[in-house]
Design a binder for these strands. Structure first.
Length: 681
DNA sequence: GTAGGGTTAG
């Protein structure tokens, strides 16, 4: 059920027009989802669907207003994206008037289906100025060469009103054609406040801050949109201080105080996006706040958006505590307040607090549920994530994506592919996020066949962006299809995206093509692409694979010296492997002793492997005993050491190993190979 | 039924 009531507000503008605005207002008429509380108790929820019943209302005193009702129905259907139903109604109508035709055209114009819009426009018995304006608006928002078509109609139309001019002007500004916009603006007989606003916005969208301010100052009249447009545009141009200066002067001059808060809120969000929380708080504190007083739309005071924006600033800065303090002080919260707070806790991976708020929240929407799902999934709690997923009143694409990504991140590739299959079965269309997750799944378990299917799907449905291409490179190289990986890599390498390079170098290293990996690494440095610690893991692994000792040492050293990257434990493990296999067991041991971490199983495993190759039983014992402590259930160190003792004829020690295994109740895992598995990353 | 601006997500 949607509990959405509307509040209407009328504003008299300076130009005498009356604007009617609808404010969204949420009522909590229904108790929280009953299953929300039962999930933790592990009740299995019955799948149920919610039907959305159209809430179209008949006018109270519906005297015969001819086509009023069916026209209203058409525009209602269009507003809700139900264009086909609208068209069916349109076709079935025995009588139509201009508004009927215009409404139908609006539907196609909004969807940028200009061919269909044009057909109706050409067919309609008579047109008014709105019909022409609609068509112009549709064409110019398609941009490119379509702007010309819009201009053609503009020149052809029998009479133009202010809307025609303004539509055409904003068509030009949005295409970056400021000269033509200015030309139209100058030749207008009667400009209104919208014409001026469009010019100010246009200058700002095209980076001309100076002329934007100049036009703003010259405006004969301003409305609530003028100041908001200026502030928003200044922020887009990085001029936050200038925006603040103008706000302060407007505060003194402007008599329409009720709309000042909108502009303040924009700047508040701007500070948040630029990480300037303190400036944001300063600004927030400057907005008057009448505690306990009556709300007054015409007065300059904090509204719920101000509070939400400030909370959002704190959440972005990971200051969840300050965010909560504000949240608790709020008298009136809306869905966004709750969602911001909950997603803040999710971001801090504090799922206890997120869960508590989720339960308190009067009317969670799909976004809320999605945050909870991805939060639990990120924490590795797939059962809870899945339980929530099963109970969402309304799923959307993000819900599917969060759940699939959750499986993927936790290495549950089967769960991910199974859910993806279900998603397709239920007729949901995957987007780039879905496809990217599924590609990672394919990389995870080297599913080349599925990976190729996804690749096909990608070429058909989305324009591949950088992350998608990177996922494709990773997928192909992980699946051993090095040539395919390289083909895609060669198409994108000039974007100098380090992840693409890492994926390709990693692919070579993983499949033992050490020379190719190192060659690519050299090219990368020549092209001034900055390597990351991940690049060096692959580079060192390639050296280990190929036995390039000198290069291995050299690259290890260059990490910190040349690129300021502190070696991590993976790099040490790799270097231990490199020098150890080369017989430099002392050096390997020194390396272990000198590193700033507790050695992990990869490090000891590398040393043990090296000892095995070079028959150093003493050092092997040190490594094996360390491994036994780290992984008491693993048989590998016992077996390896046993075999080494047997090889050199130390039968007592060999027997001791077997007895230790029995005593510790450790079962031999057949075919367990230490060194390989510790260096697959 | 047409023109310009504002807060939330994977």
């Amino acid at each position: 059920m949607v509990n959405l009531a509307s509040r209407w507000r009328t504003i008299r503008c300076l130009n005498g027009n009356i604007l009617i605005r609808r404010k969204k207002h949420y009522h909590h008429l229904h108790p929280p989802h009953p299953l929300k509380r039962s999930i933790l108790k592990n009740l299995s929820p019955p799948p149920h669907l919610h039907c959305f019943v159209s809430t179209l209302q008949q006018p109270k005193n519906s005297v015969s207003l001819d086509l009023y009702t069916p026209n209203k129905r058409i525009s209602h259907l269009i507003r809700n994206g139900r264009i086909n139903e609208a068209r069916a109604l349109f076709d079935a109508m025995p009588q139509r008037n201009i508004v009927t035709w215009n409404s139908m055209i609006t539907g196609y114009v909004r969807r940028r289906e200009m061919a269909k819009a044009r057909k109706l426009f050409d067919e309609m018995p008579d047109r008014d100025v709105v019909s022409w304006n609609l068509m112009i608006s549709g064409y110019v928002s398609c941009q490119g060469r379509w702007v010309e078509e819009g201009r053609h109609l503009f020149d052809e139309m029998p009479e133009r009103d202010c809307v025609s001019w303004n539509t055409m002007i904003s068509g030009y500004t949005r295409s970056g054609r400021m000269d033509e916009a200015l030309q139209l603006f100058d030749s207008m007989q009667e400009r209104n406040v919208v014409s001026w606003n469009a010019m100010v916005t246009g200058f700002l969208q095209n980076g001309d801050v100076e002329r934007a301010i100049e036009f703003f100052m010259r405006m004969p009249e301003r409305d609530s949109a003028s100041l908001s447009a200026l502030v928003a545009g200044l922020i887009q141009n990085g001029e936050l201080d200038e925006a603040k200066r103008i706000l302060l002067t407007s505060r003194r001059q402007d008599d329409d105080k009720g709309d000042l808060v909108h502009a303040y809120n924009i700047l508040l969000a701007g500070y948040g996006q630029n990480g300037r929380v303190d400036k944001a708080r300063q600004l927030f504190d400057q907005i008057p706040f009448y505690d306990g007083g009556q709300k007054d739309g015409g007065r300059f005071e904090r509204n719920v958006v101000s509070w939400n924006s400030m909370i959002m600033c704190y959440v972005k800065a990971r200051d969840i505590f300050s965010a909560r303090v504000l949240f608790d002080q709020m008298k009136e919260r809306d869905t966004i307040s709750w969602n911001t707070m909950i997603s803040g806790y999710v971001r801090m991976s504090d799922m206890e607090e997120a869960w508590m708020l989720f339960q308190e929240m009067p009317n969670p929407d799909t976004l809320t549920w999605n945050s909870m799902i991805s939060g639990f999934a990120q924490k590795g709690n797939l059962e809870l994530a899945r339980a929530l997923f099963a109970t969402i009143p309304q799923k959307n694409l993000v819900s599917w994506n969060s759940m699939i990504a959750g499986y993927e991140n936790n290495g549950d590739y089967k769960g991910a592919t199974e859910l993806y299959r279900q998603m397709l079965l239920q007729g949901e269309k995957p987007d780039r996020h879905t496809l990217s997750s599924v590609l990672s799944v394919c990389s995870g378990f080297a599913a080349l066949h599925l990976g190729m299917q996804i690749h096909q799907q990608i070429t058909k449905t989305v324009i591949p962006d950088i992350p998608i291409n990177n996922s494709l490179i990773t997928m192909y190289s992980r699946c051993g299809a090095i040539v395919e990986a390289r083909t895609i890599f060669d198409e994108v390498k000039l974007q100098k995206e380090v992840i693409s390079w890492n994926a390709m170098i990693g692919g070579y290293a993983f499949h033992g093509f050490a020379a190719d990996a190192l060659e690519l690494f050299e090219l990368m440095k020549r092209l001034k692409v900055r390597p990351t610690y991940i690049t060096f893991i692959s580079v060192l692994n390639a050296c280990a694979h190929a036995g390039f000792v000198k290069e291995g040492r050299m690259h290890f050293k260059s990490m910190a010296c040349e690129f300021g990257i502190e070696p991590r434990i993976e790099h040490f493990a790799s270097l231990v492997d490199i020098v150890g296999r080369h017989g430099q067991l002392e050096e390997a041991m020194d390396l272990i002793n000198s590193m700033p971490f507790e050695p992990d199983k990869a490090v000891w495993g590398a040393l043990l492997g090296a000892c095995r190759v070079h028959n150093n039983v003493e050092l092997a014992r040190v490594a094996a005993e360390a491994l036994m402590k780290l992984e008491p259930e693993s048989s590998a160190p016992y077996v390896l050491l046993h075999n080494m003792y047997a090889d050199v004829g130390q039968w007592d020690n060999a027997t001791e190993m077997r007895m230790m295994m029995e005593r510790n109740n450790i079962r031999k895992q057949p075919g367990y190979s230490w060194v390989d598995s510790s260096h697959s990353g």
